[in-house]
Write a protein that binds this DNA or RNA. Sequence first.
DNA 1: CCTACCGATCGGTAGG
DNA 2: CCTACCGATCGGTAGG
Lengths: 200, 200
Amino acid sequence: MKERILEEAGRLFATRGYAGTTVQAVADAVGLAKPSVIYWYPTKKALQDAVVDQVLLEWRQTLPRVLDAASSGADRLDNVLGEVVWFFSQAPDRARLLTRVVVDDPTELRDRLQGHLRPWLALLAAYVREGQQAGRVRADVDPEAWVIEVVILLISSFAAAEVAAGVLGGDPDSARERLVGELVRMIKRSLHPEPEGGTP
Amino acid sequence: MKERILEEAGRLFATRGYAGTTVQAVADAVGLAKPSVIYWYPTKKALQDAVVDQVLLEWRQTLPRVLDAASSGADRLDNVLGEVVWFFSQAPDRARLLTRVVVDDPTELRDRLQGHLRPWLALLAAYVREGQQAGRVRADVDPEAWVIEVVILLISSFAAAEVAAGVLGGDPDSARERLVGELVRMIKRSLHPEPEGGTP
DNA sequence: CCTACCGATCGGTAGG
DNA sequence: CCTACCGATCGGTAGG
């Protein structure tokens, strides 16, 4: 039952935000009375923490794939982006939830996110720098700033995917596809002028 | 007094969101009793609408500058980006507010935003396409998708600027500067491999 | 522009 | 896991 609650709460927090989600609404979505939700998660805050923790956990579980993608194939960046895109495409609520955490002000949650992000920032920035020394990556890239901007772009692009597809018009599915394609292209071209792999 | 209310409400809606902002909090910030706020803006919803309208109005007032920047100088894209960056740097709450409108779900607000965006999308995409025909812009760019992704990146980058600067570390001001610099570089390089202007 | 007040709903508790 | 209930606060109104 904890899982059902977590699932519905995740959906609601992602779409309506923390303040916009009532414990009663979560209870209704699951089909329980309000105190039953409070039985499993003692406060609304604890429920939100659990939801955010779950997204971070799911991300950690995706890590092996990403690291694998990062060390194989002709175009490693392309592979990594593919995994990240898959992670958010799978469940766009993840991106919406993370966007809220960043924008909703709670400094404590931000700090928790930063703790998760900082090691990644260092790792990825080192990769970029390495590429620069090898001449594969443009010299004018600011490695740390690039990584941060790419993370922002990835998360917010998926968080806004629905609206963006609406603005683009046409069939929603193909609109989403065009947007993801251009997103990936932009990120790659911002790092190096032409694909890594060269001619196959 | 309407102005004071609008100002404080804008600050609060941007930082805490619609559901997270109470009419009482707005009243306290201005130094009025709650019913006095309701006197000037008959409902909380009307107050939010006024706040969003104001941001859109300020953007329209910035338009002449942007259009001017778009038709002068060696690197027109650079000039336009400079104006947009200035618009959001001036008041980062604008970006945070727009992010919320997109993510907070109210379909009606989205539609209003889309109405504002659509003509721009067409105009900017046409510019990109024109550049492609002249060979100034890479052929693999998807003009409409590119414009949308750039708008998303610009808005969310400023909305997350504070957190991003925290992750980057060091002096907050110079961190912000690095991030904006890289943001602009990414956008430019995603369109054409080298600066438009050539050697001066 | 304020005081006084409204019904509804908030997060959470008591007790079983 | 539920019913019954708590004080606090919500958006908004009445009346001046």
